[in-house]
Write a protein that binds this DNA or RNA. Structure first.
Lengths: 181, 181
DNA sequence: ATATAATTTCAGAAATTATTGAAAATACAG
DNA sequence: CTGTATTTTCAATAATTTCTGAAATTATAT
């Protein structure tokens, strides 16, 4: 690996974690490298820095683009494609959440929906009830996520920082409304 | 596969999704099977129903137990271990979230922390700043998650159903407090 | 058009991960 | 303690995923 020592362990770590995050080692390393690089990087630079083949980098770039995590940056007088992160860290994090939801949760909801609409056996078996329960739970989470996803980042950050404190606000709302009556 | 047709596609699906969820195909199928079974199942039953080896089932059960997703249920007059889900679907979902957080996010936070405390180069490089930013973002998410995790399920469900509506409640709180002044 | 630069593709090789099944270990009844 | 039932382990093998590198394709400058 041919990269500055201060980022090496960071890049290696993202490679190791890559598999847990839905992409492979090289893709994880590529993402880490692009995120901490001030200048956009071209494919040859990435291949050289990580010590992997040019073909592998090409496939990895495709994958990161399909996740909408990177984009190209034209550099005047250079025909190569240069890649940089597709937005702020906050935007990248939200993008990862949205993409994982699409890949990890949506297919399960679809399956449950079609099983429940089109049951293979009479309803009210134990299994059927549990699938219904699972469907409703996933749907609740996704409705919440859709809602939250639409909020503007500042409100969302406020909400995050509030944490469980939001429960107190809900209580307070009730008390205030009661008093007003 | 030797299971009732009404759950077969559900079980197969959980096998396919398994890899995206951090465990392998067999473990995914085992989990699905245990969740939709009214009676607790023993290892031989599972091996037979899924058509996999006894050894594979033994390893899978270990893994599901390490995720705290299943537990044993003693059956009078039977020396075999019988397995059932370790709690309600809600509890299982929260458990999956907690476990994935531990495996997917905590290690990255640790790494960032140690890199930032013990920097390999002078601070204020671009890379250093981005790592700091990433650290702070992850820490914010985790603090939020810890907070939320402690809430009781009913409040949490209310909050989920409220979704972005929580923004309105925050606004209302401000308005009510202002009026009271 | 032609030549050159850059990127993508993909078959085969390498690396990794999952599975089997038989042997070892453990648990327990009589 | 002995014998039997049950579970676990793990070396060998199978299956899957990732990676390489050369050939094919695409893009662009002259």
């Amino acid at each position: 690996m041919n990269i500055p020592s201060e980022i090496e362990s960071f890049v290696v770590h993202f490679g190791e974690m890559g598999s847990r995050w839905g992409f492979n080692r090289t893709v994880g390393q590529m993402f880490a490298l692009i995120v901490v690089s001030e200048q956009a990087l071209n494919a040859d630079q990435i291949a050289d820095m990580l010590g992997v083949s040019r073909g592998n980098v090409s496939m990895g770039l495709k994958e990161l683009q399909s996740w909408r995590l990177i984009r190209t940056q034209p550099i005047a007088g250079d025909r190569k494609d240069y890649f940089k992160p597709n937005g702020s860290l906050w935007e990248l994090a939200m993008q990862v959440l949205a993409e994982r939801r699409k890949r990890e949760v949506d297919p399960t909801l679809s399956l449950l929906r079609s099983e429940l609409i089109n049951p293979q056996s009479e309803q009210n078996t134990y299994a059927h009830q549990r699938m219904q329960e699972m469907h409703d739970l996933i749907e609740m989470f996704l409705t919440w996520f859709d809602d939250i996803y639409k909020m503007n980042p500042d409100n969302l950050k406020t909400l995050l920082k509030l944490g469980a404190g939001v429960g107190k606000v809900l209580d307070m709302k009730d008390r205030l409304l009661t008093k007003q009556k």
